[in-house]
């Protein structure tokens, strides 16, 4: 055969966008936003170029851990409907490529963050990548229903890293921002697990819906929502005291508890009947919850910088 023509549909050569998709851009946007808030509300000033570089390398570190997560989880990503279109199960990027990109970007992001800001921030970023890839992805995810409870810490570190970029350390305020994201993660993911139905059981991932049943998951969502509400409103009277944060926390937590209460009172027949409308709506609300709560923290910090006071509040 001397015909050198070929069919492009048979090739699996990745485009630039496929490599970018390895970095989980949607998760990265959350990392960027919370890290930026941590950086901006921290005392002290950072040169805009240093701040930009720091946020970029924090995002890159988060993206690198996403690539390593996709490398390790390629087998279960092929089974779950939600993840079947990811670059590896879709056949666009090979697992080896994902591993190489993940390792290379992890090293680059930590080293560059250390050079651009300080060693505390770089150390926290390195620990975050280690925690997400080794502790969560490799260990907890397939072994315990507490996977996303403990693993949620990985997603909660970015505001602490942003704070460390500005201050070179850790303080009560940055730990509180960590705590908000940490306690927000379980209700957020369990709502997703409820309406993804059989995805996790098909992949044999021991999510709470699989190991303890869907009824128990509804109870746990409500319990964690109440805990999160108490924590975030309580924080308004401590280091994160500000009128915007208090008002936002009260409104958002009332809505969040209402959503969790609706989920608690429903059974599977009702949920199937409206295609998990309440669970989907709670999941969307959870995204808005975190975004608005961190925006409120930022707003209070801006008010303080502008010298605006509300009768001793800020």
């Amino acid at each position: 055969m001397s015909d050198t023509s070929f069919d492009s549909s048979q090739t699996t050569e990745a485009s630039f966008g496929d490599y970018f998709a390895l970095l989980k851009p949607r998760v990265m946007s959350l990392v960027v936003f919370t890290a930026l808030v941590g950086l901006l509300v921290a005392p002290g000033s950072v040169h805009p170029v240093e701040g930009f570089a720091a946020i970029l390398f924090i995002a890159l570190g988060g993206g690198a851990s996403g690539a390593l997560n996709m490398w390790w989880d390629a087998d279960i990503d092929r089974i779950m409907k939600r993840t079947q279109k990811r670059p590896i199960p879709a056949g666009k990027v090979t697992p080896d490529e994902a591993f190489a990109i993940g390792i290379a970007l992890s090293c680059l992001s930590v080293i560059m963050l250390g050079l651009a800001s300080n060693l505390v921030a770089a150390g926290l970023l390195a620990f975050t990548i280690f925690f997400y890839v080794v502790i969560y992805t490799m260990w907890l995810k397939r072994s315990t229903p507490q996977n996303i409870v403990i693993g949620g810490a990985a997603g909660a570190f970015p505001p602490m890293i942003g704070w460390a970029v500005a201050t070179g350390g850790v303080s009560i305020e940055s730990i509180m921002m960590f705590a908000i994201t940490f306690f927000w993660t379980p209700p957020h993911f369990w709502a997703l697990a409820l309406f993804m139905k059989s995805d996790y059981s098909d992949a044999k991932v021991p999510m709470l819906t699989v190991t303890h049943g869907r009824r128990n998951t509804r109870i746990q969502i409500f319990a964690y929502t109440v805990l999160l509400a108490a924590l975030s409103v309580g924080m308004s009277f401590t280091a994160l005291n500000g009128p915007v944060f208090l008002a936002t926390a009260i409104i958002l937590n009332l809505l969040f508890i209402k959503g969790a209460w609706t989920i608690l009172r429903r059974n599977e027949e009702q949920a199937e009947g409206d295609n998990y409308a309440a669970e989907r709506s709670f999941f969307k609300l959870s995204l808005l919850y975190l975004f608005l709560l961190f925006t409120a923290i930022l707003a209070d910090a801006v008010l303080v910088r502008m010298g605006v006071t509300f009768g001793g509040w800020v």
Binding site: S8, S15, G17
Partner: peptide, 14 residues
């Protein structure tokens, strides 16, 4: 094997 093949466009983009 044409230069404007879809594969080449993908490689160029990358």
């Amino acid at each position: 094997f044409r230069p404007d093949h879809e594969l080449h466009q993908r490689r160029r983009g990358r």
